[in-house]
Amino acid sequence: MYRVLIVKITSIDRSVINEITNHLSQLGFHVDVLSQIEHINISYFDWQRSQYDAEKILEYVSSKFDKFPYDAIIAIGEIDAYARGLNFVFGLSTKKFGTVFLVRLKNDFYKKKCNFELFIERVKKEVTHELGHTLGLGHCSNPTCVMRFSNSIAEVDNKSASFCEECRAKLNINNKS
């Protein structure tokens, strides 16, 4: 069983964390949550873009938590972030370390009425997607697999929150959500 650590890089409602941990547990992962918030440096913020640099945050998380005995560490924050060559990212990952940025997963970002259930579903998908990357999975061509690449919120909404059979086999996990 893979061991996953969730790290909050901003304040996040406990119900959101509970939904994430329950979802990942149902998929067959052992999940722990770091109790304190790991505040990120304001120097990672690009004042011209009004966004955080996702690569700098990922680099920080990788160096700070490198010695922690987990298979995957996912940092989650209520921020908007970008990566080189992209206007924004929902998340970013390397082997073992991942990040998920919540701002663009909310309906209010798109000037629509906020729907908490839809927001939670999107968060579960993006956390699971980045977790898959931390464990060595690439993007999947299956249109419903959580590992399908998402370049828009519509693409996030169109995939499931679970790994397809092929991706589960690669991870050697049998649980279905």
Rank of each mutant, 00 (worst) to 15 (best):
R14S: 15
D53W: 04
F109E: 06
S50D: 10
W47R: 15
L137P: 01
I20D: 14
F149M: 04
K113Q: 10
N115E: 09
I57C: 03
K124C: 04
L135N: 04
D13I: 07
E38Q: 04
C140M: 11
F163R: 02
G28H: 12
H30N: 11
P69Y: 03
V127I: 01
P143G: 07
L34A: 14
W47H: 09
E126A: 04
L171R: 02
S62Y: 10
L92W: 06
F88I: 12
N142D: 15
I42G: 02
I12P: 00
F45N: 00
I74T: 06
H39W: 12
D46P: 00
V127M: 01
D13N: 14
N174A: 13
S162G: 14
K106R: 13
L34E: 08
D32E: 12
N87A: 11
V146R: 00
S63R: 10
I42A: 10
N18K: 14
V100M: 05
C167F: 06
N151G: 12
I79P: 03
E55Y: 03
V127C: 02
V61R: 09
R104Q: 07
D71N: 15
S160T: 11
V156K: 02
D66M: 09
L135T: 05
R3G: 00
V4N: 08
S35C: 03
E121D: 14
K67P: 00
N175S: 13
C164H: 09
D108N: 11
L34F: 13
S93M: 08
R122S: 00
F29H: 11
S25W: 03
S11A: 09
R3T: 07
N151K: 13
T10N: 00
N41K: 14
I57M: 06
T128A: 11
L171H: 06
T144Y: 08
K159N: 09
F163V: 14
T144S: 13
R3V: 02
N115L: 10
R3D: 01
F65G: 06
E130Y: 01
I37D: 11
F149R: 10
L58I: 07
H133L: 00
K125R: 13
S141N: 14
V61E: 09
C164W: 08
N151W: 12
I17Q: 12
E78L: 05
D80T: 13
N87H: 11
Y70C: 03
R14L: 07
N174I: 14
M147L: 06
S15E: 10
S35L: 10
I17Y: 13
D80A: 15
R168T: 06
L86G: 03
K106Q: 11
K124Q: 12
V4F: 06
D108S: 14
D46E: 10
E166M: 08
F101V: 02
L86C: 08
K176T: 12
I12C: 01
D46F: 01
Y70L: 05
S162R: 03
F68N: 05
K56G: 08
D157M: 09
S25T: 06
V61C: 09
V146A: 15
V100Y: 03
T134I: 00
N142P: 07
G98K: 01
V31R: 03
N18A: 12
H39K: 14
N18I: 02
L24Q: 08
Y44Q: 01
L135S: 10
R49C: 09
F68A: 11
K125H: 06
T10C: 03
N22Q: 15
C167W: 02
R122W: 10
S162F: 01
G85S: 10
K56N: 07
L34H: 08
D66Q: 10
